[in-house]
Amino acid sequence: MECRGIQELIVRYSSEDIGEAEKVIVDEHIRDCNGCEQYFLRSEKLWDALDAWDEIEPEGEFVTKFWNKVSVEEDKAKTGFFGYLKGFKPNLAVSGALATVLIVGIFTFALLGPGTLDRAFRSADEKDEMILIELDRVTTSETSELLAIYGPWDNNFDVNGNGGMN
């Protein structure tokens, strides 16, 4: 096995994540390979060196401090707008009734609200007016056509009866 492969095994060796057969391969290799032997020693040193980072002893009363923190946080949660929202438990029946009243109210307002009738009448008036205008236009047009048999008319006739009709 090449040195790179052996070095991978060496890392696992230090973590005790290696089988017996692989241990033998590593042992045999480092006996003859100075570079890998050094690497093996450094790997072992590293794992031991990590122990140089001693544990600290936490101050006492950790648990008491924790429950104090919980009390403070719970008090915070109870007060304020967001606290109210968080603690708000909606009643389904009440919510449903409120929603129904709201919907009925919106429809009623839309149907009977101020200006609704005026708008309806104004709209009807406009329609009537359009019909009348159209009727008037058609009537005028028909009348002109009927009268055309007597025309064309010459507006430039004199008062003595000369001119006018061809």
Partner: peptide
């Protein structure tokens, strides 16, 4: 396993000067 392996390889390289001091 791969994380531990790669991490250790890197730590050996980084900490090598300090490991040599002993």
């Amino acid at each position: 396993k791969a994380y531990v392996h790669r991490g250790r390889m890197k730590l050996i390289d980084i900490l090598e000067p300090h490991l040599a001091q002993g």
